[in-house]
């Protein structure tokens, strides 16, 4: 057992950004632990190009055309047994969350999920309590160590070098052991709001307390000529439409200004907005993780500060 295997994700023949970040994490880890870095891509039919690794396993089978946990777990269990890596890395996508814990269980190991950094040891850092604390995790089992990495935590390398040699790996699968029947992915309604293009976003979270209070934030957004956005709980409650949600289950944004009102900054939200050029956060809790990514922070009562800010913005514009 040695080296690092990075399991990457593709859609329609294109590797997603998070997979490239996971590959960067894999290269970083391989530099620490030695043994080299190889990649694997599950697909119906290969031909994907991956650079910066020694080898790419194209895991191919007709039964892997549509994603199922059963198919992926069985196929990757066979691959891990063949490659015998010390570490198996994944991007922390919704798909990985669905199958990787079961894959680790096949080896009686536990996935270290959503890691944000890798230190010497190796020690894997992940966040606890909605980002309020960090924690160092270590593998203590003797099987391969399974780790998924958080979006945006590792920089995907643009110049990766030459394309790696591809080796086709055909797992033994039979249709009988795939228990779930997945349907075609769909969208609820055509997305009418594209927040990714908005230069200024005012975003509201749990701290607003009640639906009727949202108007004070909307007034600020109007004064700034900004798009309104929200963290998940606001959309869950139906106070703003789902299409205005920023975060891992909503949109990813990178405006010039992201003004977060009453948002504590849970990881799932931060991954959707940490690319913003400037972040202003208003929150009553000085320990709220949103302040870790904010350029300007205000600890205080949003019900006093937001109306005062709206007034000052309107005055400045007139």
């Amino acid at each position: 057992m040695s080296g690092v295997l990075v399991v990457m994700e593709q859609r329609a023949g294109v590797l997603n950004r998070m997979s490239l970040e996971a590959l960067a994490a894999g290269q970083q880890l391989a530099a620490k632990v030695g043994g080299g870095c190889v990649a694997a891509v599950v697909s119906e039919a290969g031909g994907l190009k991956v650079a910066g690794v020694e080898k790419v396993y194209s895991v191919e089978h007709a039964l892997l055309k549509d994603y199922t946990s059963d198919g992926y777990v069985d196929a990757l269990e066979q691959l891990v047994k063949k490659v015998q890596p010390s570490y198996v890395l994944f991007p922390h996508t919704y798909q990985v969350r669905d199958f990787a814990p079961a894959l680790a269980t096949r080896f009686m190991q536990v996935l270290i999920s959503d890691a944000t950094a890798i230190h010497d040891g190796p020690v894997f850092v992940r966040q606890l309590l909605q980002g309020k604390l960090n924690a160092d995790y270590k593998q203590t089992g003797d099987g391969p160590c399974f780790v998924s990495v958080q979006a945006g935590s590792f920089r995907a390398d643009a110049e990766a070098g030459a394309d790696a040699a591809v080796e086709v790996f055909t797992p033994e699968l039979n249709a009988g052991m795939i228990r779930n029947k997945p349907g075609e992915p769909f969208r609820e309604s055509a997305q009418t709001v594209d927040l990714s293009a908005a230069p200024v976003i005012v975003s509201v979270g749990r701290g607003i307390g009640e639906e009727s209070n949202i108007s004070i934030v909307e007034e600020l957004a109007t004064a700034l000529g900004a798009e309104m956005a929200a963290s998940r709980p606001i959309c869950d409650n139906g106070w703003l439409p789902m299409e205005r949600q920023v975060g891992s289950s909503g949109q990813t944004v990178s405006p010039k200004l992201y003004l977060a009102v009453g948002i504590s900054g849970a990881i799932q939200h931060l991954v959707g907005m940490k690319g913003s050029k400037a972040v202003i956060a208003i929150n009553k809790d000085e320990n709220a993780p949103i302040f870790e990514v904010a350029d300007y922070g205000v600890v205080g009562d949003l019900f006093e500060i937001v109306p005062a800010l709206t007034k000052a913005v309107l005055a400045a514009k007139s």
């Binding site: 009686m108 190991q109 604390l133 960090n134 160092d136 995790y137 089992g141 302040f291």
Partner: peptide
């Protein structure tokens, strides 16, 4: 245990706020 939580601590700020 297959994995162990070694240490918890306050996160370092990613930006100077």
């Amino acid at each position: 245990k297959a994995v162990s939580l070694e240490k918890v601590y306050l996160p370092e700020k990613q930006k100077k706020t």
